[in-house]
Nucleic acid binder design. Structure first.
Length: 661
DNA sequence: GAGCACTGC
């Protein structure tokens, strides 16, 4: 391993780290930074006073890199070298080099804000700008002031604007270590193609006919099934999403075709909606993709866009996740750390999220009782922050505990955490099968998808977690096992939070139909107070409350049923708003008017300016955001006593809105 | 009546 480029820089690295609390290390793929940097510091005695921590954005990376380092150190994993990821802690008292996901380090800092057990913290792959890494960057900046005498922080990345991070950390030094990639020739197309799917197909065939052997990796935005599997001894065409940029390494790739696009999920804080959009990649991503051609020998990267477009239109770096996500969980986490003079709107992020996004987070936290009207964290909010869940789901668990339905809520919340991994990979044959078998699964009594998820898990429990049952019902075994792990972890945390011995056993009893789920639905209503929607008068469209007014529909895959008149419930809570062909509510649950009334009253009282601190003079931006909260419409919502008056009230609102237009 | 990239506690 002595021949890795980084080892030639050992003296320089050690010298720089000795004299500076924070150092940025830029190292291309193949530089050995992830494996060698901690070993260099270990050799130089930095693990004597504490552990050397190395964070990774992904679980697989934490495990595989630590295994390699353990091998190089000639120790077993869990001894001097170990790793910690969710559900799996392979460290011991002997551990001096510890690989962990950035999420695990964030959790640790919740219970030990000074992170005293660590003498060195290396944030690896920082260029990916994961939400967790970005929060850690902000926390490290504060931590280094408290612990300037006994903590070293290294930020390492492949292609990151080192100058920017250096400026963030008071002009700390930037070291650049060359990588060991083979040269990659970049070829741009002369003009943008009409269809990048078609163009990439043509280019692939072109390479196949003209170029010497070597596999072809094609970056597109979804799994387009245009290529059939190759016979042996043939050239492989690998069609991939951005998964091959980071998570997956394909050996034998010599040619890369880069469409220049990626599918990205983004959150709109004014409407509360997520959307999946095909967007242009950044220069950093384009470089990352090209690099995949030079791992085994010199390669070529064909870019399906002109070099002028690359230079003039492409963003330098991908928009960081923190600017594309709902920040309710993040803001609650930061509030619970009790950082001194902590104004959430002024937290020092490398790239700050918009004021609107932070205020949306505050508004959501207020509605779920995690912060009070002055923006201070409540005792309930502190408990919520301990749960590794979105605030609405932690709130649901705590309310369920009060309403004696914790066991059911634990199941629902765990199922939601794994939902995308439950259904099988799409294929023509399984699609038909799935339709068939899903009809055999319970239907949630028509009350909604949360109840159905609960019933599915309870059925599985009654088969004693039988793997064949999952297969028969076309549920991914790995997904269901994950649900079971999450449920166990959440049960333990709930036991700890409530300091009691709770009944968290999955129910085995069959009781009286719909009534069985009343408390659970009430807990969901209180938990999802920030995700409540009201039905329109004459049709089954809904309007989410507390956001800019938009018409949304219940997703057609929902098991929610309409009444004898064909009307859906007057109020539902939803797990997610997602814009595909239209805006949809995914995973909805019917709730009752008498549970909704207090939430409407709270929406009415909402004052975002006060929530965000309110002591300083409001600037224009804040005033404008406050005005987007639809005071008039919300104030018009009365909490009526019965269904007739409720409908009357809704009709008046409807007419009032019509009149305004 | 839809159809969704990736990751994490």
């Amino acid at each position: 391993m002595g021949d890795l480029p980084i080892v030639r820089f050992e003296e320089k690295i050690v010298e720089t780290v000795k004299e500076n609390p924070v150092v940025v290390v830029i190292g291309e793929t193949g530089s050995g930074k992830s494996t060698q940097l901690p070993q260099i510091l270990y050799r130089r005695g930095y693990a004597k006073s504490g552990i050397i921590a190395v964070t990774q954005p992904r679980r697989v990376a934490a495990v595989s890199v630590s295994r390699r380092v353990a091998q190089e150190q000639n120790v077993r994993i869990g001894e001097e070298v170990g790793y910690a990821i969710r559900f799996e802690d392979r460290t011991s008292e002997k551990t001096r080099i510890k690989y962990l996901t950035d999420g695990v380090l964030l959790r640790e800092s919740l219970f030990n804000p000074e992170l005293n057990q660590y003498s060195v913290i290396i944030l690896d792959e920082a260029h990916e700008r994961s939400l967790n890494t970005d929060i850690l960057l902000g926390l490290m900046k504060r931590l280094i002031k408290w612990r300037h005498s006994n903590l070293k922080v290294l930020i390492t990345s492949a292609t990151l604007d080192g100058g920017k991070v250096s400026r963030f950390f008071s002009d700390c030094p930037v070291l650049t270590v060359p990588g060991e990639l083979f040269p990659v020739e970049i070829v741009h197309i002369s003009e943008l193609p009409k269809s990048y799917v078609e163009a990439s197909l043509k280019k692939a065939i072109d390479i196949h006919v003209r170029e010497p052997e070597g596999d072809i990796l094609i970056f597109l935005t979804g799994q387009v099934r245009v290529f059939s599997p190759p016979p042996p001894n043939c050239r492989r065409f690998i069609v991939s999403t951005n998964i091959a940029e980071t998570s997956l390494t394909v050996d034998g790739v010599v040619y890369v075709i880069d469409s220049g696009y990626v599918k990205q999920r983004q959150y709109n804080p004014s409407t509360g909606m997520y959307s999946l959009e095909v967007v242009q990649i950044s220069k950093v991503q384009a470089k990352q993709r090209a690099g995949r051609a030079g791992r085994t020998r010199p390669g070529k990267c064909y870019r399906l866009y002109p070099s002028t477009v690359y230079h003039d239109d492409f963003l330098d770096a991908t928009i960081p996740e923190i600017q594309r996500s709902s920040l309710a969980g993040t803001v609650l986490y930061l509030k619970s750390l009790d950082l001194a003079d902590m104004d959430i709107l002024k937290f020092d992020f490398l790239d700050s999220p918009s004021v609107e996004s932070l205020e949306d987070a505050l508004k959501q936290l207020y509605l779920v009782d995690a912060i009070d009207e002055n923006g201070s964290i409540t005792s309930l909010g502190r408990k919520m922050a301990e749960l590794p869940l979105e605030p609405s789901l932690s709130r649901t668990l705590l309310e369920a505990n009060e309403l004696d339905c914790l066991s059911q809520a634990l199941t629902v919340v765990s199922m939601l955490s794994a939902e995308t991994t439950l259904l099988p990979a799409p294929s023509k044959s399984s699609e038909k099968k799935r339709r068939h078998t899903l009809s055999n699964l319970p239907d949630g009594f028509g009350l909604g998808d949360h109840i159905q998820l609960l019933q599915i898990y309870e059925q599985w429990y009654q088969t004693d977690y039988n793997i064949d049952w999952c297969k028969e019902n076309n549920l991914q075994v790995r997904g269901m096992v994950f649900v079971r792990d999450v449920r166990k972890q959440l049960s333990q945390i709930m036991q700890k939070i409530t300091k009691g011995s709770l009944d968290v056993q999955t129910s085995n009893r069959r009781r009286g139909g719909q009534q069985e789920y009343k408390s659970l639905r009430k807990a969901l209503c209180i938990g999802y107070a920030n995700q409540l929607a009201e039905r329109m008068i004459r049709h089954n469209g809904y309007r989410p409350l507390g956001f800019k007014s938009e018409l949304v529909q219940v997703h057609p895959s929902s098991v929610l049923k309409s009444d004898e008149d064909g009307m859906l419930p007057n109020y539902v809570v939803y797990h997610e708003l997602i814009v595909t062909s239209r805006p949809f509510m995914r995973n909805v649950c019917a709730v009752e008017m008498r549970w909704v009334a207090p939430i409407l009253a709270k929406l009415d009282k909402l004052n975002v300016f006060k929530l965000s601190g309110g002591s300083s003079q409001p600037d224009n931006q804040i005033q404008e955001v406050t005005s987007t909260v639809e005071k008039k419409e919300i104030a018009a919502v009365q909490p009526p006593e019965d269904r007739a008056s409720m409908i009357q009230a809704a009709r008046e609102r409807f007419l009032a809105r019509k009149g305004q237009k």
